[in-house]
């Protein structure tokens, strides 16, 4: 069976999922909450032979799992990391996730890792480079690679292809799929002066496997994708648009900083149901979505905020000691 054929089998809408966070392990094990599926950060479990991997095995017995990575570095000009791919494949074989995703980004060169999802100059050269690497990764993992649009804080003079067209070309050439992070579209659009509605309308909707929702922080002249709060009204509006254009796909909520109780996290996800209703009669325009710009520029954040926070990925040993 070809990889493209495998891709077509995995497009079922799984409903509403949550990011699996270690802070919620005990609650999930004890209460087996009514969540359709969980999304794991692949790197949290790839090298773990301890409690995280043990818990994952138990949760996998009760829930479908989707794997979401942050270190594939599909756009880097360094060779793909063979050790990383081997560990990723081993985890895939064990977990049997519904699909495997990562980001359209690069994380480092010269064998270093900045642990950030860095932006790519979206050029013809870059497109060919990423196509070649997606083909290779899909051969290794023998299944779809689902790529997410990252939140970006700069754009390049060298970029010649709008991001939505770049994704369209990647999907057309490789058969890969897309994870549409609606919050990231909003953040990137604000930071880089493009229209989020045009972006979402311009995507190949049939190839969107999953959507992400998350909260962000307004820092006056720019927005940071902090994953540490509730989803904003503007992002819900974009989700409403994307939901209708895609016909509805699996959707998950990411909450990585100031992680709340499981109940609060779950309730925020369930708000998505309200935005699966009909589109507003007058449609959705750029002005409608970005109408809070005036509000945004007036907000000041007291403490510094971090884009793509990842400290939750590091094991918090303090809470794992036997007293």
């Amino acid at each position: 069976m070809s990889i493209r054929a495998v891709l077509d089998q995995t497009q079922a809408d799984m409903g509403l999922g949550l990011g699996l966070r270690s802070q919620h392990f005990n609650h999930i094990m004890q209460h087996k909450p009514d969540v359709d599926w969980f999304e794991i950060i692949s790197e949290n479990f790839m090298d773990s032979g301890g409690r995280p991997r043990h818990i994952l095995r138990r949760i996998r017995a009760d829930y479908p799992i989707v794997m979401h990575g942050v270190s594939l570095s599909i756009g880097s000009t360094d060779p793909l990391d063979a050790e990383y791919l081997t560990c990723l494949k081993a985890l895939i074989d064990e977990v049997e996730p519904t699909w495997v995703s990562d980001h359209l980004c690069w994380t480092g060169v010269l064998s270093l890792n900045t642990h950030d999802l860095l932006p790519l100059p979206l050029s013809e050269e870059c497109l060919l480079h990423v196509i070649e690497r997606i083909d290779y990764v899909q051969e290794v993992i023998q299944r779809p690679l689902v790529l997410e649009n990252p939140s970006t804080y700069l754009s390049f003079h060298q970029s010649t292809i709008p991001e939505w067209e770049f994704f369209t070309a990647l999907i057309e050439k490789t058969g890969c799929k897309m994870l549409l992070d609606v919050n990231n579209v909003y953040v990137s659009a604000f930071n880089n002066d493009f229209d989020p509605v045009t972006y979402i309308k311009g995507l190949p909707h049939a190839s969107i496997m999953q959507m992400h929702l998350a909260g962000h922080q307004c820092c006056g002249d720019y927005i940071i994708d902090t994953h540490d709060s509730q989803v904003t009204e503007a992002v819900w509006k974009l989700f409403n648009l994307a939901w209708h254009l895609t016909g509805g796909v699996s959707t998950s909520l990411e909450w990585d900083g100031n992680i709340p109780s499981f109940q609060v996290y779950h309730q925020e996800l369930l708000k998505a149901k309200q935005f699966m209703q009909a589109l507003p009669k007058d449609g959705l325009s750029k002005d409608c979505v970005l109408s809070n710009r005036a509000l945004v520029s007036g907000v000041s954040v007291e403490s510094p905020v971090v884009a793509n926070p990842i400290d939750f990925v590091v094991s918090d040993i303090k809470s794992e000691l036997v007293s």
Binding site: D116, P121, H157, Q158, D221
Partner: peptide, 26 residues
């Protein structure tokens, strides 16, 4: 010189977001 300024931020300010986040994230 590779970074485009935006309506609200200079190229240096755009780069500064990544520089600050790199340090703070680690």
């Amino acid at each position: 010189h590779y970074v485009k300024p935006s309506a609200r931020l200079s190229a240096r300010a755009h780069l500064g977001i990544y520089q600050e986040s790199y340090r703070m994230r680690l």
